[in-house]
Amino acid sequence: MLIIKKLSKTYGNGVQALNNINLTIEPGMFGLLGPNGAGKSTLMRTIATLQMPSSGAIEFNGKNVLSNPQSLRPALGYLPQEFGVYPNVSALDLLNHLGLLKGLSDSKARKAQIDMLLDLTNLSAHSKKAVSTYSGGMKQRFGIAQALLGAPKLLIVDEPTAGLDPQERNRFHNLLNDVSENTAVILSTHIVEDVSNLCPQMAIMNNGQVIKQGSPSELLNEFNGKLWRKEVAKSEISDHRQKFEVISQRLVNGISEIHVLSEQLPDSGFLPLTPELEATYFANLHLASNQTIGA
């Protein structure tokens, strides 16, 4: 079990990336949702022992990760949002190297797992090619493979499906689901659908803070009957924004549709919005940003 207590991180330039984060993550999928710049990657890197927080504590299975990062690393699998690879090193060689670093010292077991992971990520045919020559999707699949090397008990995947085609993405979701039976998997993303499909527990982050956490269904219930939608002409959008609490705007069949948060029917042109995670996510962000402004 991963416990994060009062975690804060302020960069040298004064930017506060994390602000008093408190989370408890148990084995299974945990979705971390938030817009760009919310602090998700900083939190991921901090949990993955790559960064030191300004304050707070992280415990994994009862051990203090910050004072003893080595206690976590044997159990850690990490796929960063962006990563590079050494030039001219094949996937096989790099996985072998990473496998050895992760304690897969038995060559047979290492080979078996690498073969399995290459197969799972559909890279077997390209295993002898330099990873630096891979396309974006292949490189991402390689990242997934390396994160799963060894026996991770905590798997952190930061924007893992970026660059994957739908088929690969589905496959990866299934793979994560398999892994999460015995492993805490933190899925950091801004794709609401991924969290919605995969994660029984989730948190929403914004401006370095966790603004909401719980199960997706709990989050949905919160805004039941309070979300409304309306198709509007482009020229009316500005006016509606002034009149109502517009939480999001999107195009449906080429026509602008606004979503509004309101305790009651805002006006006659609005229709109730069937609760879905994306709408509640925007509603939370909206509320959080209003609080920030108010504050």
Binding site: L50, Y78, Y86, L98, L101, K102
Partner: peptide, 13 residues
């Protein structure tokens, strides 16, 4: 090469 995320999170000391 931006490999730190892969290499430095391993249990290697």
């Amino acid at each position: 090469y931006n490999v730190s995320g892969l290499i430095e999170t391993t249990p290697a000391t």
